[in-house]
Design a binder for these strands. Structure first.
Length: 422
RNA sequence: GGAGUCGUGGCCGAGCGGCUGAAGGCGGCGGUUUGCUAAACCGUUAUAGGGGCUUAAACCCCUAUCGAGGGUUCGAAUCCCUCCGACUCCGCCA
């Protein structure tokens, strides 16, 4: 959600920023509506002021036992006008809300202009295994521990059943990530709801524009597409002290995505599923802290890949490739020998005050009069399903067995290798 | 699921349908007192929007807001309805 004042003060800059995302100019429409709204508001307020005065007089006159019928008659004529003006004003407010809430956040100055092709590689880590490797689904099925057909029989496409050591490997990855972030990176573990109301999903920006990407229960709950939703909404409608910030939350949750519009993409394997596990990182900061926190959060996510010894690169996303609420986004892409390419495994975004405005999450500097919207950041630390894919493909041996990364072995009861038929 | 109670400002907590945007307290801020700390005392302290004045701020005026949304009324924090949330008791269940 945008600050209307900002658009009023500098409509050209606002449109120029949107243009960098490839988003059409919107300031004129906003300002036009704003003008209409203010006009309607003024007309309404003049009538309300008169009504309030007259009502007060009526009270006084009646209190002295006088006759107030003349005043009452006057207001009676005002009444329908007030109602009409009130409705007009509300309609305009709703219209403005709809308009503002459908405009994406403005990219930071250092974000490259353009679409996906303008994404910029920032750094690389590790040495990719360039030899042709087996795909994770071949490896998993070869192990007899990854079953897409069984999943399809009960749930259809884009689901998977993991069994035995692979099921445990997924659990191990989640535990390892969570432990790293809570014991070394300063995040507080949270076990949040994964079914949430409209307002929560609106707060983080998936609603109203992206409803089709989400699953919804018959009684109106949304299944969270990421723990970003519940973790960020932890501070909704709260007024915090700057001194409490930054707050850092992490959670391991299932994530649910309809993948409408992804038909035909990544149809094989575990890369794109309707349901997957993810460890999410969320930070709530002051406006001054968010840029540095963004770097810190990205480093926390990278640390997971380093400890797993998985080669990756970091991309600074171009304005047009960023998510709706992001000011700036780093994507972490892990090397997948099966595809001989880097694939996204984490996305770390600074959302500035965009989500905070929608959630009414504010913080006050000590002694300060006014509370300001906080800044919110979120990042995957990491997508567990895709990390499993990366481990399989990067740790596969010639005979189809999978070596367990050293840091995971304690979580696997000391198991060092997963053999076929295990 | 059945029966009931409740939802007020940063927090706690009053509030007869008519100068109540809201008593009081805590906290915060400013000041007095003080060797320092503590305490005491005085003053001040909601948010959003619109408008006036101004280079700007301060300031002034208006409107809205007492969980949310409707309704009744000349007038609603106060009455009615719906929803959301909290709590209590009973029943049921992991």
């Amino acid at each position: 959600m945008h600050d209307l004042k900002l658009i009023r003060d500098n409509p050209e800059a606002f449109d120029a920023s949107l243009a960098r995302r490839g988003f059409p100019a919107s300031a004129a429409a906003v300002l036009d509506l704003d003008l209409k709204r203010r006009d309607a508001q003024t007309r309404l307020q003049v009538m309300q002021a008169r009504r309030n005065d007259a009502s007060r007089e009526i009270g006084q006159v009646k209190g002295k036992g006088g006759d107030a019928s003349a005043l009452m008659a006057e207001i009676a004529t005002l009444k329908s006008d007030i109602q009409a003006a009130d409705e007009a004003d509300k309609a305009l407010a709703v219209e403005m809300d709809g308009l503002l809430s459908s405009i994406p956040n403005l990219p930071a100055a250092e974000v490259p202009e353009g679409g996906e092709e303008a994404n910029t590689e920032i750094r690389r880590w590790g040495t990719p295994r360039l030899a042709e490797g087996a795909a994770h689904y071949e490896l998993g099925e070869g192990l007899g521990l990854m079953d897409f057909e069984a999943a399809a029989r009960m749930s259809g496409a884009r689901f998977v059943v993991l069994k035995g050591a692979l099921a445990r490997l997924e659990r191990a990855l989640g535990q390892f990530m969570l432990d790293l972030h809570t014991t070394e990176n300063g995040y507080t573990e949270v076990a949040p709801p994964v079914l949430v109301r409209d307002q929560a999903v609106y707060g983080t920006g998936q609603l109203p524009k992206f409803a089709e990407d989400l699953f919804r229960t018959t009684n109106g709950f949304w299944l969270v597409p990421t723990a970003e939703v519940p973790l960020t909404n932890l501070v909704r409608e709260q007024i915090l002290d700057d001194a409490q910030l930054p707050l850092r939350f992490t959670a391991l949750t299932p994530c649910f995505r309809s993948e409408a519009g992804a038909a035909g993409r990544d149809t094989r394997g575990m890369i794109r599923q309707h349901q997957f596990a993810k460890v999410e990182l969320v930070s709530i900061t002051t406006p001054e802290q968010s840029a540095a926190e963004h770097e810190r959060m990205t480093a926390c996510a990278e640390e997971v890949l380093k400890r797993l010894d998985l080669p990756y690169r970091v991309l600074l996303l171009a304005a047009g490739d960023m998510g709706f609420g992001a000011v700036k986004t780093y994507d972490l892409e892990v090397w997948l020998p099966g595809q001989k390419t880097y694939r996204e495994i984490s996305s770390c975004s600074n959302c500035g005050d965009f989500q905070a405005r929608r959630m009414q999450a504010r913080a006050r500097a000590s002694g300060a009069k006014n509370a300001r919207p906080v800044h919110t950041l979120n990042g995957s630390g990491l997508a567990v399903g895709r990390t499993l894919v990366a481990v399989l493909e990067n740790y596969a041996q010639a005979d189809g067995s999978i070596v367990i990364p050293a840091v995971l072995q304690p979580y696997m009861g000391g198991l060092q290798t997963i053999h076929p038929h295990a």
